[in-house]
Simulated assay, not measured.
Amino acid sequence: MAEHGNDIESDLLRFWNLDLIADLGTPRLTWRRLGVLIERAPDESALARTLAGEGALWTPERHLLAGVIDSLGVVAYLLGGTIVTLGGAKDNPVPHPKPIERPGIETGKPAAENRGLMQLARKMGQKPVTQ
């Protein structure tokens, strides 16, 4: 409690409208209930962010959404290159897409060579995008 008291206090106010100082030890906030609320604190709580880092905010849904956005960037790059090539230009005006940074996932490594949109890029005559 001494180490994370501020996080716990702010989470109690934010999520449950409980005042740690005024309510603790009353029927409104028993010690048991305090333990349950701390144990089951939401992923976006200050306590979870302190204990797990910013990765706590990255739920599976957020990872999937970031993947969709990354894929749309690749599609825009491929379509932009195709349209410009059909018009006779040599350079793709759409910038290379950069993936959304995710906690715990390193960027800067080449993407898989023979999967998904990268394989499609090669088939369409585009230079594959690397992360």
Rank of each mutant, 00 (worst) to 15 (best):
M1K: 14
H4N: 00
G5H: 06
D7I: 01
D7L: 09
I8N: 03
I8S: 06
S10R: 14
D11M: 04
L13D: 08
R14Q: 07
F15E: 04
W16F: 04
W16E: 03
N17K: 03
L18Y: 00
L18C: 02
L20R: 02
L20C: 01
I21S: 05
A22D: 10
D23M: 08
L24Y: 03
G25W: 05
T26Y: 08
P27A: 15
L29P: 02
L29T: 02
L29W: 11
W31C: 11
G35P: 09
G35R: 13
G35E: 01
L37G: 07
L37R: 05
E39C: 02
R40D: 13
E44M: 06
S45D: 02
S45F: 04
S45C: 01
S45A: 01
A46N: 05
A46E: 02
L47H: 00
L51V: 13
L51C: 11
A52L: 04
A52H: 00
A52M: 10
A52Y: 00
G53W: 10
G53I: 09
G55I: 12
G55D: 11
A56I: 15
L57D: 08
W58Y: 10
T59P: 05
T59S: 15
P60K: 10
P60F: 10
R62E: 10
R62L: 15
H63L: 14
L65F: 00
L65G: 02
L65M: 08
G67A: 08
G67H: 04
V68H: 06
V68E: 10
D70G: 15
D70L: 15
S71N: 07
L72S: 07
L72A: 14
L72V: 12
L72D: 05
L72M: 13
L72N: 07
V74I: 01
V75T: 00
V75A: 00
A76T: 07
A76H: 10
G80S: 07
G81W: 03
G81P: 06
I83W: 00
I83E: 08
I83Q: 03
V84K: 03
T85G: 14
T85L: 09
L86E: 09
G87P: 00
G88P: 09
A89F: 07
K90R: 02
D91F: 06
N92W: 00
V94T: 02
V94W: 06
V94C: 02
P95W: 01
P95R: 02
P97G: 01
P97Q: 01
K98N: 05
K98Q: 11
P99N: 06
I100T: 00
E101G: 10
R102P: 04
R102W: 12
I105D: 07
I105Y: 11
E106S: 04
T107W: 12
G108N: 15
K109P: 03
P110C: 03
P110R: 01
A111L: 15
A111P: 05
A111T: 09
A112Q: 11
E113F: 11
E113Q: 15
R115L: 14
R115E: 14
G116F: 00
G116P: 01
L117N: 06
M118F: 03
M118H: 05
L120R: 02
L120E: 04
K123F: 12
K123I: 13
M124K: 13
M124D: 12
G125W: 14
Q126H: 12
Q126N: 15
K127S: 08
K127G: 03
K127R: 07
P128F: 10
P128V: 13
P128K: 11
T130C: 01
Q131V: 10
Q131G: 12
